[in-house]
C-alpha cells in the first residue's frame, strides 16, 4: 500500500503555479485593455495599453501551449 505522495504533490504544485500565473496574466491583459479604453476616451492612442495587453494575452497562450507540449513530448 504505497501512495506516491511526491507525484500527488507535484500535481498540486504544478497546477497551483500554472493556474495562478494564467489568471494573473489574463487579469493583466484585461487591465491593460481597460487602460487603453480610458486613454482612447481621453483622445489618446492607447498604444501602451494595446502593447501590454497583447504581451499578457500572448504569454497566456504560450503557457497553455507549453503545457500541452510537455504532455505530448513526454
Amino acid at each position: 500500500m504505497t501512495i506516491d505522495w511526491a507525484a500527488l504533490g507535484s500535481v498540486f504544485g504544478v497546477s497551483l503555479v500554472a493556474v495562478l500565473a494564467l489568471v494573473t496574466l489574463f487579469a493583466g491583459g484585461l487591465r491593460a485593455l481597460t487602460a487603453r479604453e480610458a486613454a482612447r476616451s481621453r483622445g489618446g492612442s492607447g498604444t501602451a495599453g494595446t502593447a501590454t495587453a497583447t504581451a499578457c494575452l500572448t504569454a497566456c497562450v504560450i503557457v497553455v501551449l507549453f503545457g500541452i507540449y510537455l504532455i505530448v513530448a513526454g
Binding site: 497546477s15 489574463f26 487579469a27 487591465r31
Partner: peptide
C-alpha cells in the same frame, strides 16, 4: 484531485476578482 482542484480554484477565483476590480464593464 477534487481537493486540489477546489483549493486551486478558490485561490484563482480570489486572485481573479482582486486583480480585475478596476477593469471596465465592457472589457
Amino acid at each position: 484531485a477534487p481537493l486540489v482542484a477546489g483549493i486551486v480554484a478558490l485561490l484563482a477565483t480570489r486572485l481573479t476578482y482582486r486583480l480585475t476590480k478596476g477593469v471596465s464593464r465592457s472589457v
